[in-house]
Amino acid sequence: MNIGGASASIPFTTGFRTLMRREILRYIRRPRNTFMPPLITNVLYFSVFGVILGERVGTVLGVEYILFLLPGLVVLGAISNSFENSSFSIFHGRWNEYIHATVTSPLSYTEMVLAYVLSSALRGVIIGVLIALVGAVFIRPVPVEHPVYLVAFMAVITTLFAALGVIGGLWARDFDYLTVMNQFILRPLVFFGGVFYSIRELPRTWELVSLLNPMVYMVNGVRYGFLGPEAVDVGPNVALVVLTTATVVVVAFDIYLFHRGYGLTE
């Protein structure tokens, strides 16, 4: 027996690294499916909303509209892709049953979950960077006022949505389920999360309702990292703590689901 991949006490074993590599290669080698669509979409966003409409909007919270828009678009692309990657990878593996090769391996459930989550979070971060680079074509220079906050928020929100994607991938019974989750749950929350506007511009009631939307805090956190305190609706610190806690809870729940065999075993 090899057992080299089997020790739960040693983190980041060969088995874990192999699954990470497999997951990353899967999207790296298919850029037309994974990286091109968000790039093209964001070129359109920046052109239409940033340049054409932005000139009429002027400034929001004291910054040019196109600059205000950039952090929200980064968040939108990053979390959508994190979620989509883990949910698709797990569901596709279940649908075609090749996930059995992973499930019947001596990887611990924690290693399996971390490999799916971290590789998907990485895809979200890469997409976020690419969107920022697209933004840099339209905005020179792109400021980064608080890089530590920016990195922390990007790491936390992509991990959180990758972990949520694991639940989605295990729960889905058909490809339609993935579409429903993305189009009818994720996207509305993001669009009403202050990507395209400041929630201060809303009537008071809707502003308060918006504060119940966790996306507001994610967008604000990343916006704080790029633009500093003047351009945000709410402060970053409490949001970072709450989001980090949520991420840990969701990852732990993923591990519990793998341990139970939810969606994986009969």
Partner: peptide, 13 residues
Amino acid sequence: VLVHKAGYHGVPK
């Protein structure tokens, strides 16, 4: 696919 499967079992690349 085989390299991945062996890797899951702890076999170095």
